[in-house]
Design a protein around this nucleic acid. Sequence first.
DNA 1: ATGAAAGCGCTAACAT
DNA 2: ATGTTAGCGCTTTCAT
Lengths: 323, 323
Amino acid sequence: MTVSNVINDHPHVKRETRDRVLVAMARLDYRINVAARNLRTGRTGTIGLAVPEIDRPYYGQLAAAIVDAAAKHKLNVAIEQTGATRERELSALALSRNRLYDGLILSTVGLGPADTELLRVDYPVVILGERIFDGPVDHVAMPNVDGARAATAHLIDRGCRRVAALDLGDDEQPGDVSVSSLRHSGYRQALTEAGLPYDPALVINLQQFTMEGGAEAASRLAASGQRFDGLFCVTDTVAMGALRAFATLGIRVPQDVKVIGYDNVSESAFLVPSLSSIDPDHGLMARTAVQLLVERIQHGVAGRAVCEVVGGFRLVERESTAL
Amino acid sequence: MTVSNVINDHPHVKRETRDRVLVAMARLDYRINVAARNLRTGRTGTIGLAVPEIDRPYYGQLAAAIVDAAAKHKLNVAIEQTGATRERELSALALSRNRLYDGLILSTVGLGPADTELLRVDYPVVILGERIFDGPVDHVAMPNVDGARAATAHLIDRGCRRVAALDLGDDEQPGDVSVSSLRHSGYRQALTEAGLPYDPALVINLQQFTMEGGAEAASRLAASGQRFDGLFCVTDTVAMGALRAFATLGIRVPQDVKVIGYDNVSESAFLVPSLSSIDPDHGLMARTAVQLLVERIQHGVAGRAVCEVVGGFRLVERESTAL
DNA sequence: ATGAAAGCGCTAACAT
DNA sequence: ATGTTAGCGCTTTCAT
């Protein structure tokens, strides 16, 4: 017991006793058994992070920020890949429920508003991303609508009059709060505010939010014969694919078309041309998500009212939208 | 006990009994307590993955592959960021020693040959990367020398006669087996084999293996006044920075300089110009590393002789080295 | 300031 | 096929 007190830095241990214990520990090459401690305390010291795919720049950079933020609370981070499927997002939830993790940060993409009730669980969860509003758990959201509006307004401000978009358009159910539909509505708002018409022919539906998807959609846009002088892309990764496709097609950026993305991943500054983007401050989002989770872990799941945090953003102007 | 047998799919449970147990479990919303199982079995079902930074494309893509490979063995993956420092690589080792993980895949960058003995631990470890040869643990290595030689030979084959390199040069201790020095020696070998002189003025030392580092080093190379018509970069990420710097400086790729990288990260195919690279087959490396670790976990750390696996590679030709 | 007792929830080994 | 016993290594509680 005194050994336990020494290990956990409890007071009421005589200096000399502590030293004797420490010497013995060193001599025996003693290692604490984390599993036994977990069983006894009910805590694991690990939080789960479920993201669609860790090899996408956006999630990689988010994960790095979360690992750092968690380390400040002495928490480890276990990463789960959900492949953006509803099923595997639910299975990530189940793992936490098994007390493998003290809490879970879940980047929702597959879960929809219909799944709200499934999130009503008795252990700490923070949603990072969209698709579920007014759910039963804390939520750290990006300024999707405002950011997309600012991005589109920036294109218009730079003289674009036929602004296209690569996203999922209005393809989804009403009431949809996916990242794509939120950003899409920001795009539409900016057009309206500038007195420009919304032309569905300028909205190209992506197959996936990847570089491949962006390149393919941009090629379809160019092949459609529609005139366009600006392009809003739902993510920087998609924009990267679009820039590549335009280069192949001989479409010059920014001379022929100005392009802007969303996320401001670190690659964007190094593209040719460098990519203008909306920077939602990943670091702050990560710190906030971890902070909210830690509060739930420490004060119980019902410790305070559910809260919803929406971050700010910054418009980063680069070559792809230069005059 | 019968409940335990049902949970673990043991045989010798009557069908009817099993069903009764399952019904009761559902009714009580029973969740297995992983911590208790861990304590009893001595396994956690989680392996650790320690990489310098998860937000670098190379490590992100490696991590994704490892998470997938581990999932096939029903293992979770916890990610540790070491920041490429020796100290934090050692601390990742310590965490596993505390039985937090069943084993550890360690991407060494900071640990050197002098630390070989520190790896002589009594739990499963696989080294993924370089810097420690003939160590006491299994090792999955890349074909650094051969790959770099093939990359450089490709530049020469494309007509380059003054081939520069961005890496750490010969700056390090003799006997160094860092990724950089291995690739550097491949670069030199290719020059020698082609009968070209090795010119230290064409080797620019990187501050860091990042896009920023690559851009800065490429600018220094251009500013040095040295003529060069080819550039071997120690990683694709560094090459991405170099391509960006050349664009800023008005140096055309591939007309003025041909550029090749190493790693074949997925971004490389989408750059403008797209980047030629050496593809070391991350998926295979990841599967091999997990396989080796699982064997150690299942059959004990001393189950078989230490083994060293070096993967193959593929030269991927893209626009940056076109004629 | 130190220690004795109890038990977290599971499963290996051993009856029955 | 099912049940009993014991104990993994720690920490909370309660003596001393």
